[in-house]
Simulated assay, not measured.
Amino acid sequence: MKFIWVFHAKRIKQLSIIVMMALFAAGFLYIERSQLPVFSTSEGPQAFYRAETDDNRIALTFNLSWGDKQVGPILEVLSQKKVDQATFFVSASWAERYPDLVKQIKEAGHLIGSHGYQYKNYTSWEDEKVRKDLIRSKQVLAELAGEKPTLLRPPNGAFDKRVLALAEKQEYSVVHWSVDSLDYQNPGVDAIVDNVMSNTSSGDVLLFHASDSVKQTDKALPIVIDQLKEKGFTFISVEELMASTEANSEEIK
C-alpha cells in the first residue's frame, strides 16, 4: 500500500489543492515553513509532518542532543503515565557519551530515531558531508540501541529537498512535527501546557526536548498527558501514525 503524507505550512504564497483517487497521487508538494522548504512527490523523497486521521491518535516526540539530567525525570513521567511509545530523536555524538541512557530509553519501550551525529544544519553542508554524518549516526545508534534507526529528524529540524533525497538513499524517513511545545524556551509550565493543548488535534506529531537546556518539560509533561487523555487522545508511535494516515494529495506552492 502506498501512502502520501500531507503537509501544512505557516507561510504559503499560493495554494492550490488537487484531490485525486485514494492510493494514487501525482502532485508535487512544496512547503515553505519558516526556513524549511520541503519538496516531495508520490514517487520521491518525503517528510512526515502529521497524519490526516480522525481517531484522536497522536505521537509524542523528543529531541535529545545535550546533557544527562533531564532524560531520567522525563522517562519517569512517561512510565508513570503509561506512555511507552514515544520517539526520542537522539544525536549520535550524545549517544556515544551516554550509552546507558540510550539503553534506558530503549528498555522503556520507546523508539530511538536519528538526530544526526554532529548536530549541525544539513542545509549548509555539501552532499558528501551530510551523507557521512547520516551514515555515522546510523552506525553508532545501531550499535548502542541494537537496531538501525529508520526515522530521521535532521538537526534543528532543518532540511530541504536535497537533504530529503540524501536521507532516502540511507533508508531514512524524515519526520518533522506539527505541534511545538516551545519547551526549549523555558517559558513556564503553564505556557508549555497551553502551547500543546491549544494546538493539538488528531494525527499531530508533538515536539518536546529532553536535553538539559529544558528546565520545565518534566513538570509540564504530566499535565499535558493527563489533559490530552481527558480530551480523548491516545499516544502511539510515529511509525504507527505514519502507517495510519489517509492517502491524499495536496499541492502547495
Results as ranks from 00 to 15, higher is better:
F24D: 11
I105L: 06
S124M: 02
S201L: 08
H176S: 10
E76R: 15
P45Q: 14
Q85I: 00
V90A: 06
S244T: 11
S91H: 01
L75A: 08
L221C: 05
L15I: 09
Q139F: 04
Q170W: 01
G109N: 05
E240K: 15
S201W: 11
L78A: 10
A247T: 13
Q185I: 00
K103H: 08
I58C: 08
E251R: 05
F159R: 00
E128N: 12
M197W: 00
L111P: 00
D194L: 04
I12H: 04
L241M: 05
V83A: 10
R11L: 06
A210G: 15
L144R: 02
A191W: 00
L60N: 04
S181H: 05
A86Y: 11
D84F: 12
K253Y: 08
I192C: 04
L152K: 03
Q85C: 03
L101F: 10
G109T: 07
S173E: 11
S202R: 09
P37M: 06
A165S: 14
V77C: 10
D133T: 00
R57N: 10
S91Q: 13
K69W: 10
H115C: 12
V174F: 03
F159I: 04
L64T: 10
V163I: 15
G27Q: 14
K253I: 11
G116C: 05
A108T: 03
Y49A: 07
I225W: 06
H110F: 03
D127Q: 09
G146W: 01
W5H: 14
T123R: 05
D180P: 01
D84A: 13
G232C: 02
S124Y: 00
A47R: 04
P45S: 14
L15N: 06
G27K: 13
N199T: 09
H209P: 05
D55E: 11
A142G: 01
Y119P: 09
H176G: 02
L141Q: 02
N195K: 06
D68N: 15
T87S: 09
L221K: 07
V140G: 02
R162N: 01
L64W: 07
E240R: 12
A59Y: 11
A167T: 07
I18R: 12
I12P: 03
G188E: 05
Q80K: 14
K161R: 14
I17D: 14
V163Q: 01
L228Y: 05
V77P: 11
L64H: 09
L221M: 03
I18L: 15
S211V: 11
T245M: 11
I105V: 13
E168T: 15
W177V: 02
E126S: 00
R33D: 14
S65Y: 09
N63A: 08
A22K: 15
Q170L: 10
Q216W: 07
P222Y: 09
G44A: 15
Q46N: 14
D218T: 12
H115W: 02
Y98T: 11
T200P: 00
E43H: 15
E107I: 05
L75I: 12
S114V: 03
Q104C: 07
L141Y: 00
K82R: 14
Q85W: 01
S65H: 09
G232K: 01
L23K: 14
W66N: 10
L228N: 07
R57V: 02
R136M: 02
T245D: 12
